[in-house]
Structure formats: structure tokens, C-alpha cells
Design a protein around this nucleic acid. Structure first.
Lengths: 335, 335
DNA sequence: GTTATGTATGTAACCGGTTACACGTTCACG
DNA sequence: CGTGAACGTGTAACCGGTTACATACATAAC
């Protein structure tokens, strides 16, 4: 069932049918009614391939994430997909963004644009981004990208501030020995959060601090990192991690060592994935609008594709959500 | 840069270029070398839209899941995408499979086939499935679908057996009052697991049992369900839930009521999502090959698209993984 | 009544591939 | 040396839409 068939049955030309579907007001009411009748009767849908070929638009966007085994990216992709769906766009997912081979599977001619998140942006980034000839929006701090592409479009959170909020809270509630578990990779996120932590501790020289690193898909690595912190001569009274999965591992480690949370050690994570509320104790964390990040990225991308000179980058604030893994304000410290 | 351009530069016809790319052995070695040289120099890639229009294949598959905010579906989609990527196919994700509106966004003409998982298959299923004119593979028990479509292609796990394994284990280690938290929906999964549980308890009349229901995205619902179980006159000594997210909520609820796990109450979940190891105590669960389910579904779908008469359905076994939320074999009961 | 303006529609080129069929060579074989 | 098969290549139709431009007609303005 193609457009010529519809045109023949409706007794009009293909151009009229096409116009009727795309610019209804360019067609007289009578003709429109006749055509739509046939279209509905026959259950006709235009071929996306033909439309793409003709218009040069695929109405498809690719989203590149490192993994989907972390609710953070799940929420991101979900937000992305819904924003796109509302506007008749579809979402191609590449959930192996850190695997260079995956980028080869990505056929740029098949999409109108990309949303890129969480890939390793440091080493081969320039090369990889340079090869992208389509509009793309990164979910990463725009400022870090000025060297990599001119006027980067970005949606991101103030994670420098997030790290400082978490550490400040811990400091203000009396902690003077804080452990931080960072990511075991070399990405902009990691560098930025490390910088925030370093700056914080420089500004608070009376606060002992210990850094460790872990890959959040690797529970054993997290347990090892946490144990290293526990083994410090001056044991930290709080541990801050760069995401909630690592924090979950930390809670696990502390429990198996019989350490009470938050009485003996407080724990703060980052991301506020849905899971955070499910943990025992429920996890205090730096909350980002995960779903909105995806939605906004998709929206900016679409505006950009349409040529509207849209917002170049959007910064979302983060907020500290306090749950059971930190002491309640007013609770006695180190009870 | 299109195929005619390449043909002109290489001094051959478009047909030869096309053949060179698709059936290299149909072209002489000398010509092939010449063409490939030009192709590489110019960085030419055929337009997917044009190829789709011409061949009628999109090399794209849609995957419909209810949500990505559960690692189970994350793993599924990830497996799917990788199996597809290896064969040059792309994955469109619809992460809102239970929303009827989402199905309208799904343009069947844009894909070669579908992998469908976790959607509500009971009420409007027949209608929805009937509208699908493309090959599809469901990740659901094939037997439940014989009424809905003839010779359904399916990849699934033996979850009847999984439920019975979990309950048997609990029974054999001495539990005689077991709480079960089922899903608060009416899908085949739920019906099947409910049947398995009912059958088990019929076969073991000496075992008291209590059923509750929850939606796994709803922590409060889970807490309420769990509390209802705790409030039973004869308090259960074990709780089995239909997925790990609900089990996480149960652990959370028990902890806040000061109930020791596994000493006072044992807990077993279902799915074995990566998170399960991160929980405190780490969660015993019925393990399914989540990632493989996605991979296998994609593979079967591709074979089916190609017309190879592939395996119609594949059943994976499940296994009971025992961690800290159940008592160690040999540990004294109700210590 | 003639001309200008606007509206509705049709014609045909175009998007960029694939492939059936035709054609020309080369080679083996009788 | 003539014939047919096998092979390599080119021509042109086709996939199913969109849209610039042409055309026809109705209406308004003078």
C-alpha cells in the first residue's frame, strides 16, 4: 500500500495526498476528507524509508551510553525516549559507549543526531567526536568540551557543587576524617569531581581525607576500596562515593565488618537512583534529575536539528537528599 | 557523496559499485580494488534510507520493555543490542511498553521485527499482537501464547520451576510459614508464578502461606505488603518475592522493624540482577540468564527475519543462588 | 470585461540505492 | 573455426515518498 495507490483510489494526485498528510491546510476541506477517508480505510502509513530518502531526515536519534546495568543510565535513556516519542522521533540505543568497536556499528547516516553520555571523553575523544558530522548533545559539562568541539551543546549537572555539598554536610556535622571513593577511570566527570574534592580538602586542612577508586560494575573492587579505607590508621567517620552503586557496595562492606551506619560511619552516594531508597539503611545521596537530563538533551537536540537556535547548554542544580545513611540533623555524633 | 559519484570517479557503473559492496565475488579483482580504493578515499557509506527503500529491509529491530529502571530490563536490552550490533542491526528502544500510547509511536514500517518483553499480555494483548505484521519474538512463556498467535517465537525461563525451587528450598530448610509477594498486575508472568506457588502450597498442606502483592517500582507499596505479612498472626519465617527490587524493599522493611535476616526471616528474590550482590544482606535469588534472554531473542528474530526456519522457542533453566539472605546449609534454624 | 491575485491541484524530477536483464568478452570444446 | 557457457559490466526500472513548478480556476479590483 503506497501513496500512488491511495491517490488512485481517492481520485487525486500523489502530490495532493502527500500534502494532505504533511500540510493539511494546503488542501481543500472536501479533498482532505476524501483522502483521509481512504487513508483510514486502507490503514495507510507512509514508508519511513521513503520519507527519509526524500527529506534527508530519519526522525531517529541515537543515544550512546556506557551501560544499562545502572539505573542512572536507564533513567536517562527513558527520559530521552519519551521526549523523542512525543515528537514522533525514535531512539536507537548503543549501550556500549566505552567500547570503541561499538562506535563502528553506529552508522551516522542512519540518524539525525546523537545524545552522548558517559563515554570516555579524554583520550580518543577528539578523534571520535570529530568524526561525528551530525548534531549532537553531550550529557557532560560543556566547559570541559570547548577544546573538543566549538560551541558544544550540553546538558549537565553542577557536580562540582554536588561533591562540595556532600563533603560540606559531612564536615559540618562533625566529621574530620572522610573517605572518598572515586571512579577508576580517566573521564571528565572523574577529573571534575576529584578536583571538587581536592579543592574542598584544601579549603579545610583540618579534615583528614583518603581517596580510593573503584569501577562501579565491579563489586569486589568496591569492597576492596572500602576495606582499604577502613584499614587507615585514622579510620574515616564518613565515606562519600561518586555514585550510588559504589555506595551500595560500601554499605555492604561496612555491614559485613560490623560497622554501624550512620553511627560509626556515614555514607553519601551520588545520582539518587531509584534503588537508593531501597537500600538498608536508605542512602543519602546527591540527587540529580536523571530523567530530566535525558529529556532535556533530547529536546535540545531536536531544536538543534530543526535549526532553531536553541539553548546551547543547560545546567541543572543538584540537591543533597538526606536519608538514613547519614545522621539526622540534631542526632548526637559518633554516638 | 552517493553511489553515482563513486561510480563516476572509479570509472564504472553504479551497478558495479553496488555489487562490489554487496557481492564482492561478482566483481573482478581489479575492478574491486579500484572501487574499494575510491570508497575508502571518499569515506563513502551507503545511505541506509535508500537501502531500506530499495531492499525493503531496515536492518533495525525494536525492543519493547516496560521500563529501564530495573536492571533486569537493562541487561535484557543490553544483550539484545549487542547480538544485533554484531550482525549489523540496530536497536530501537521503547521503554514504556505498558503504556498503550507508546505502541502508537511504534511505526511498524520502520523495523524488520520486534522483541517484546514484559508488556501486559492479557487483556488488550490479542488486539495489539494482531496488529503486528512483522516477525516478533516474545520474552515470555511460549505456551501461554498459543491462543494469541499461532506458533509464537519465544525465549523464556522456567519460572514455574524457579518459584518451586525457591519455595522448596525454604520448606526443606524448615520454614512452615512462608510469605510470598507477587506482582500487582495481571500478566502471564504473574499468573504463572502464582500458579506455581499455589501448586506448591497445595502439595505441602503443612506449610502456612500468605500472599501479598506489590508493584516493584513502588517502594511504599512493597513496604506496605511486607508489613502486612509481618502483621499476620502467624508471622512468616521466610518471604519470597517475584523480583529482586521487591526483595530489596522487603529487606529494607525488615531492617526498619528490627527483624534479622536471615535469622528471623529468610528472603529470596527473583532475577539475580547485579544489584542483588550489593544488598545488605546480599540477596539469595532465583537466577535467570537475563542478558542471554535478550541475546537469544535477537538471534532468533534475525534468523526468523532471514527466513531460516529457526528454533521456535528456547527455554532457559533458572538456578537458585544462595547468599546471605537465606541461612547457610547446616546453620541452625531460627537461631 | 480585462487583469491581477490567490487557491487548489497535477506533473514530473529527485532522493540514493538494488537488481533484472541485456550485452560483450573470453574460453572450452567439438 | 563455430558454438555455447561463464563471467564481468552497463542500462534502466524500481522502491515510495516530497516538492518545485506549472496549470487551472475562482474571485477581486479596476
Amino acid at each position: 500500500m503506497n501513496i500512488r495507490e491511495i491517490a488512485r483510489i481517492a481520485g487525486v494526485s500523489v502530490a495532493t495526498v502527500s500534502r494532505c498528510l504533511n500540510q493539511p491546510d494546503k488542501v481543500s476541506a472536501a479533498t482532505r476528507k476524501k483522502i483521509m477517508g481512504v487513508v483510514n480505510d486502507m490503514g495507510y502509513t507512509p514508508s519511513p524509508s521513503a520519507q527519509s530518502l526524500s527529506t534527508g531526515q530519519t526522525r531517529t536519534v541515537a543515544c550512546v551510553v556506557p551501560t544499562l546495568r545502572n539505573e542512572f543510565f536507564g533513567q536517562l535513556v527513558e527520559g530521552c525516549q519519551q521526549a523523542l516519542g512525543r515528537r514522533g522521533y525514535q531512539l536507537l540505543v548503543f549501550s556500549t559507549g566505552n567500547d570503541p568497536a561499538a562506535w563502528n556499528h553506529l552508522n551516522l547516516r542512519a540518524v539525525d543526531g546523537l545524545v552522548i553520555s558517559g563515554t570516555d571523553f579524554t583520550d580518543s575523544a577528539k578523534e571520535r567526536l570529530a568524526r561525528i558530522t551530525k548534531p549532537y548533545v553531550i550529557i557532560e559539562n560543556a566547559e570541559d568540551f570547548v577544546d573538543l568541539c566549538d560551541s558544544p551543546k550540553a546538558v549537565y549537572i553542577n557536580d562540582y557543587s554536588g561533591v562540595q555539598m556532600a563533603l560540606s554536610h559531612l564536615y559540618e556535622t562533625g566529621n574530620r576524617a572522610i573517605g572518598v571513593i572515586s571512579f577508576a577511570d580517566d573521564t571528565f566527570v572523574t577529573r571534575r569531581r576529584d578536583k571538587a574534592a581536592a579543592d574542598f580538602f584544601t579549603a579545610h586542612p583540618d579534615c583528614a581525607h583518603f581517596m580510593a577508586k573503584s569501577d562501579y560494575t565491579d563489586l569486589d573492587g568496591t569492597l576492596a576500596a572500602c576495606e582499604a579505607l577502613l584499614a587507615k590508621k585514622r579510620r574515616p567517620t564518613a565515606i562519600f562515593t561518586y555514585n550510588d552503586m559504589i555506595a551500595a557496595g560500601v554499605l555492604r562492606c561496612l555491614a559485613s565488618h560490623g560497622v554501624n551506619v550512620p553511627e560509626e560511619i556515614e555514607v553519601i552516594g551520588f545520582d539518587n537512583i531509584p534503588l537508593a531508597r531501597f537500600l538498608t539503611p536508605s542512602l543519602s545521596t546527591v540527587a540529580a534529575p536523571n530523567r530530566s537530563l535525558g529529556e532535556k538533551a533530547a529536546e535540545i537536540l531536536l531544536e538543534f536539528i530543526r535549526g532553531d537556535n536553541a539553548a546551547v547548554s543547560v545546567l541543572y542544580p543538584v540537591e543533597l537528599v538526606l536519608r538514613e545513611s547519614t545522621r539526622q540533623p540534631g542526632a548526637s555524633k559518633k554516638s
